[in-house]
Nucleic acid binder design. Structure first.
Lengths: 234, 234
DNA sequence: CGATCAATTGATAGAGGTCAAGACGCGTGG
DNA sequence: CCACGCGTCTTGACCTCTATCAATTGATCG
């Protein structure tokens, strides 16, 4: 009786969200062979350095990461946060270098996938090819979705709502969120000042939309939160 | 001596930017067979309606289009503008419905591609598969690139600079631009008021960075424009 | 238990939104 | 060819939202 390797796709709790979605049982081991040993990271570990040559995609197995883009000398921009099951590096395919640095926000685990091998494999596994395109498409959407939001209030509400939905999809709580990132990271990501995030969160609390203690957030009124977004987000 | 069909990929001036990039001579006719008859549109023609079922990707052959997303009842957001050689609809793959409406800004021509057929074909033509991924990746990048810009001045400068680069890549002028869209469209796209666009353009003129008469723009000082962006855009 | 980093809170100022009026360009029809 | 009307663009005045600066509190960790 051979034990399934600890970090295989077939026993991963994210298999229905991640790349293996839709891939049949007979093909999934071909995908598993391609997945390099998982890498364990600790808080503030730098996993990818911006401008390094692109060869591998990453999938988050557990924990949380952030992507940070250095523009000019000092100015940096938090592109986004990555939850389990999400693929990192799709944006690097075209320029063939990573466009941002990747940093672990907490103790986390990543799976590595050689891109060339993955593409080759996907041309013989139709569901894998489809999922690769689906995930790219999804990334385009999520990046676009936040552009339309106007005020700081809408932006922050959208951000929290988006986090809650992503948590829920992963089988976690839709109302109890742990914020692994700092207020400054959130603010930077949303293009506002950290002080504004602080003030708005307090305001949301005052309206009984949510409750925050440090990094632990409870969404008390999901419908109210959705209203604050200016509606229509997924 | 058979004449090449008028709207084939092989004699299209955008073939080195569009999907055919890298596809060999022997395979390109297989791609051409998949391309439906080109569709001619006039200004303000609605080509795609938001929320319609997704089946086909589009490639711009000539002219210019805009993507518009309706959020709540009245509020609408201009997602972006599409130049010749660009693929439209990649963001619709995941949700399987178009996430925005597509409107012609001037007399324009589109090529239609059935997505299912394209994916099937791409699994037997490696360069096509690569290009499909590359174009998706590029789209993720361009959407991300503008998020980091802070002030209205930086946003507008980045927008103009981006337009100029895209024009240049297509073999058009890098300094003489025709703005097919209204100031309101630009403003909406960049998340600012039309009045602000107007004032900033005037300001850019005053600093001799560019010259504008109605919809015709001349970039007088490309380096100065780049400075205004806050640097680092492609 | 200080030292350090994160988060909050208050005061102030400036960028840019909004409202309103007017100018300009363009197409239509007399 | 010119007058009219409509949509686009510009310009000005005002005000709000949010960034910035500064100080304090709170949390975390060696």
């Amino acid at each position: 009786m051979t034990s399934v390797p600890q970090h295989s796709c077939s026993n991963c709790s994210m298999r229905e969200i991640c790349l293996p979605m839709g891939v049949g049982k007979q093909d999934i081991d071909r995908l598993e062979n391609l997945v390099q040993n998982s890498k364990i990271h600790h808080q503030n570990d730098v996993v990818i350095r911006q401008d390094d040559a692109f060869h591998t995609l990453y999938a988050v197995k557990s924990g949380m990461y952030k992507s940070v883009k250095l523009n000019s000398d000092v100015e940096e921009y938090v592109v986004g946060f990555h939850l389990p099951g999400e693929i990192i590096g799709l944006d690097a395919i075209y320029p063939e270098v990573y466009t941002s640095s990747l940093i672990a926000l907490t103790n986390s685990v990543l799976c590595q996938l050689d891109y060339e091998q993955l593409v080759t494999l996907s041309s013989s596994i139709a569901p894998l090819q489809h999922q690769l395109m689906r995930l790219s498409s999804k990334e385009i959407n999520t990046t676009q979705a936040f552009q339309s939001t106007q005020t700081a209030e809408q932006k922050l509400a959208s951000f929290i709502h988006n986090l809650a939905i992503r948590n829920e999809v992963r089988g976690f709580s839709a109302t109890e969120l742990h914020l692994a990132m700092t207020r400054q990271d959130i603010a930077n990501h949303l293009g506002m000042a950290a002080e504004t995030v602080s003030r708005l969160l307090k305001q949301f609390q005052g309206r009984d939309v949510l409750d925050i203690k440090h990094r632990e957030m409870s969404i008390l009124d999901p419908a109210g939160l959705l209203l604050l977004t200016g509606c229509a987000h997924s």
